[in-house]
């Protein structure tokens, strides 16, 4: 399922509704839905902030199979911009030295299982994968 959203922070409400329709209804576990919302918000807002020459809309697609949730963000019309390779923030710095920016991509890297970037035909695509927790694994962990 794929949908396009205006390149605007105010699109977030609509994006969350779209993700909830696709993901929340198909996962009893709260964690993957949270992680994918956060990943999409961080990546989408970076596209809005830093790739201003791009097309007026950004495409978001969701694919779900028995193994994983896969979300793609497709941003066309701009130059290659691979935010997945952005410099890692130092989260061990003391309060006074903590930068305000750069945290978003850190959270995404830490919380998703796969993160990939590709660029082709003037379109940059970021693919985010979050594995589904299989019921027997969850049962085992709960012990």
């Amino acid at each position: 399922m794929q949908q396009s959203f205006r390149r605007d922070i105010r699109s977030l409400d609509e994006i969350f509704e779209f993700l909830d329709r696709q993901i929340t209804s198909r996962s009893a576990d709260e964690a993957p839905a949270y992680v994918l919302r956060l990943a999409v918000e961080e990546l989408f807002t970076n596209m809005v902030k830093y790739n201003r020459g791009g097309d007026p809309e950004i495409g978001i697609g969701v694919e779900i199979n028995g193994r994983a949730f896969t979300v793609t963000l497709t941003d066309c019309g701009g130059e290659p911009f691979d935010m997945t390779r952005a410099k890692e923030v130092d989260t061990l710095r003391p309060l006074e030295e903590r930068p305000i920016g750069g945290l978003g991509i850190h959270l995404v890297r830490q919380m998703v299982d796969e993160l990939r970037y590709s660029y082709s035909g003037r379109c940059g695509t970021i693919t985010v994968v979050k594995y589904r927790e299989l019921p027997h694994v969850r049962d085992h962990r709960q012990g």
């Binding site: 949270y34 956060l38 945290l103 978003g104």
Partner: peptide, 19 residues
């Protein structure tokens, strides 16, 4: 129910100012 880096940024900025 939900917070992202945007919310963390506001809290961090406030904490830095207060400290």
């Amino acid at each position: 129910d939900y917070i992202s880096s945007a919310g963390l940024g506001i809290l961090l900025k406030t904490q830095k100012r207060l400290s």
